[in-house]
């Protein structure tokens, strides 16, 4: 089990960067019971991510953001279209066929702290993906290194999530995504449940991962201020279609789609959500 061909692992950063892309994806939830069918959740969506760049995926609730993330994580099968990493197609399937992909693409859920099993220690939590994804080598130094990257003291290794602060748990969950040295991080509203100072440190951490360590980041958010601060480009998803994909400042200043304009307007109407220093553009748009 070594990283070959695609060169997707962070540890093989010297090779040519592998593009993570969805190509012409459509998806419809299966009909349940005898209710009438709904319109498809995603229609012909294409999007590509590259290492060292961050993309924001914005859209109102129900626009299909979460479904797109599930498909990117190879947890749901699109009814049409493909997910490719470095040109190779990825399909949902049993664990063993997806190990390499999962080492390359990791995920930070909406409430990272809640994604930690309360019965396990920090060390066990971080070792689990290393073991299950068959990462070779000594796991202990890899765990310590990941904790260091998120600035959690090594003394916490034998503690349980219940014995850590909320912010520490948040970092542990991020460290768990980083421990397998992924090339991409998919973050689904990673700061929506946090208080403002904590929000800032988590975003700063993600920023440094992108800029200094060359990770590719897809940040799912409904908060344009966060998008403005973090991401070079922004894709607007509306009713299952990508209606706009452009540099973030352009989306904020001159949104071309009605959905983009509505989001910008909503953000302008609620200045309280704009907290970061770099988002004045959004407020004035």
């Amino acid at each position: 089990m070594s990283d070959d061909g695609t060169g997707v692992s962070g540890r093989s950063a010297g090779r040519k960067p592998a593009i993570l892309a969805v190509n012409g994806i459509s998806f419809a939830y299966p009909r349940r019971g005898f209710r009438a069918g709904r319109q498809p959740t995603l229609q012909n969506v294409s999007l590509s991510l590259s290492p060292g760049a961050s993309t924001a995926l914005v859209g109102s609730s129900g626009s299909g953001k979460s479904t797109l993330v599930r498909i990117l994580l190879a947890l749901a099968k699109p009814s049409a279209g493909t997910v490719t990493l470095g040109g190779e197609e990825v399909r949902p399937g049993p664990v063993r066929t997806l190990r390499r992909y999962r080492r390359a693409v990791q995920y930070i859920p909406q409430n990272p702290a809640g994604s930690l099993d309360p019965r396990m220690t920090v060390f066990q939590l971080l070792r689990e993906p290393l073991r299950q994804l068959r990462v070779e080598g000594n796991h202990r130094p890899l765990v310590s290194e990941a904790l260091e990257r998120v600035e959690v003291p090594a003394a916490m290794l034998e503690r349980h999530p219940g014995e850590l602060s909320g912010g520490q748990n948040q970092r542990v969950a991020i460290a768990r995504a980083l421990v397998v040295s992924p090339a991409y991080l998919l973050a689904d509203e990673p700061v929506s449940g946090l208080d403002l100072p904590l929000r800032d440190t988590v975003l700063a951490l993600l920023e440094s991962l992108v800029h200094e360590q060359g990770l590719g980041l897809l940040l799912v958010t409904h908060d344009l201020a966060t998008a403005a601060r973090m991401c070079g480009t922004t894709a607007v998803l509306s009713q299952g279609r990508i209606v706009e994909h452009a540099p973030t400042h352009q989306v904020l200043e001159k949104p071309r789609s009605a959905a983009g304009a509505a989001l910008v307007q909503a953000a302008a109407g609620m200045p309280s959500t704009l907290h970061s220093s770099s988002d004045r553009t959004a407020a004035t748009a």
Partner: peptide, 10 residues
């Protein structure tokens, strides 16, 4: 949530 994320961790 801590069970739902497990497939992603392999």
């Amino acid at each position: 949530p801590y069970v739902q994320i497990l497939p992603v961790l392999g």
